[in-house]
Computed example of a mutant assay.
Amino acid sequence: MFDYDKLAEKVLAGKELTNEEALAVLQCPDDELLLLLHAAYRVRRHFYGNKVKLNMIINTKSGLCPENCGYCAQSIVSKAPIEKYSMMKKDEIVAGAKRAAELNAGTYCIVASGRGPASRELDIVASAVKEIKEQHQHMTVCACLGILKPEQAERLKEAGVDRYNHNINTSSQHHSNITTSHTYEDRVNTVGIVKNSGISLCSGVIVGMKETLEDVIDMARSLRILDADSIPVNFLHAIDGTPLEGTDELNPRYCLKVLCLFRFINPTKEIRISGGREVNLRSLQPLGLYPANSIFIGDYLTTEGQEGLVDKQMLEDMGFEVDLEPLDSEIAKAL
């Protein structure tokens, strides 16, 4: 039997997992899963206690995207029957922040489809963020608008954007199997622009897109190197009409092992169970909060999420509490 507690002690001592140890986590026998979760929880508890961060998304522009990402219902190659609309008005985005605050979501994520923001779209987001920060001073505002130029990142920083999401999605080796309309290096370049602007970086992955175990380990290590403050771990929800339609490689136990791996490799970071949580973790969703310390509430971009009262009950049943600590305090504590 593998000694997972020794992995926790190693991580808490500031050391990194070897590739062999990382593989052992992903290949953990199902009858040892509770031991693995206990070890990952030791690390999670050390940095975050029993607190859970709540995040809420607003899809401010749907579809109409020129990229060919194989997982996405909004891409140009998708035939999925989704609602398509251009950029929302500022007042609609601001109203979404009020809803997020009412649901105790500490982070409000403003997302727009497309390769990158047009000038008009950036103007709307910047104006909305300024008003949101006036009304909700302690709310973390995250933007996800695609590939950025340095001057665009500076504009968002000036407007009050606290965090910017730009996922690496998969490993550098597997990237061209998922999309060819932009490169892995394009994504890493935007990550660098975000960090240089002084905005906190949110960057994550999608697991279940026919990648190898080694790819998953590479994703977790890449995010450690990129020093992402927040890491959303999505589990593929294969949507009919997308190139990955019918892909079904995941089970709840493996998803839990992936979350444990990300906690071990990125011990001080916010690990968020993101898209696909409900359809992939299913009845084991509560166990995901032993390695992870963050979830999305409400709906995702083009798929429905779990009903809010169910999430609230889940947290209460497990003895976890909602973390409303401001972003600056959160990052300082993890350093």
Rank of each mutant, 00 (worst) to 15 (best):
M1C: 06
Y4P: 04
L7D: 03
K10W: 07
L12K: 14
L12M: 13
G14N: 07
G14P: 06
K15I: 09
K15Q: 15
L17T: 04
N19I: 13
N19W: 14
E21A: 08
V25A: 12
P29C: 01
L36R: 00
L37H: 02
A39M: 05
A40T: 04
V43Y: 04
R44Y: 02
R44I: 02
H46V: 02
N50C: 04
N50I: 01
K51R: 11
K53Q: 11
N55H: 06
M56V: 06
I57C: 11
C65P: 13
E67H: 13
N68P: 10
G70D: 11
Y71K: 05
A73S: 14
I76R: 08
V77I: 14
K79M: 10
I82A: 08
E83P: 02
Y85T: 12
S86Q: 14
M87F: 07
K89Y: 08
K89A: 11
K89W: 06
K90H: 04
D91N: 08
D91R: 08
V94P: 06
V94G: 10
A97S: 12
K98W: 09
K98I: 11
K98E: 15
R99L: 13
A101L: 04
A105S: 14
G114L: 01
R115E: 06
G116I: 01
G116Q: 01
S119R: 14
L122R: 01
I124Q: 02
S127D: 09
K130F: 03
K133C: 03
E134I: 13
H136R: 13
H138Y: 15
M139L: 14
T140E: 10
T140N: 10
A143G: 01
A143P: 00
I147Y: 05
K149V: 03
Q152P: 01
A153E: 05
K157L: 12
A159C: 08
R163F: 09
Y164L: 09
Y164M: 09
N165H: 14
H175A: 11
E185P: 03
T190F: 10
G192Q: 11
G192V: 07
G192F: 10
I193S: 02
K195S: 08
I199G: 09
S200G: 11
S203C: 03
G204E: 00
M209E: 00
T212C: 03
T212P: 05
E214D: 15
D215E: 12
D215L: 04
M219S: 02
A220Q: 03
S222L: 10
L223P: 00
D227A: 15
V233N: 05
H237K: 05
A238V: 01
I239V: 09
I239W: 00
I239T: 03
D240R: 08
D248Q: 14
L250H: 09
L250V: 02
R253I: 05
Y254M: 04
L256Q: 05
V258C: 07
V258F: 07
L259D: 14
F262P: 03
R263P: 05
E278T: 06
E278P: 02
E278Y: 05
V279T: 06
V279P: 00
V279E: 02
R282P: 07
S283I: 13
Q285D: 08
G288E: 05
Y290N: 11
Y290A: 13
N293I: 07
S294D: 12
I295Y: 04
T302L: 12
Q306F: 02
Q306P: 11
G308P: 07
M314K: 09
E316Y: 11
D317P: 00
M318P: 07
M318N: 14
F320P: 01
V322C: 06
E325V: 11
D328R: 15
A334H: 14
L335A: 15
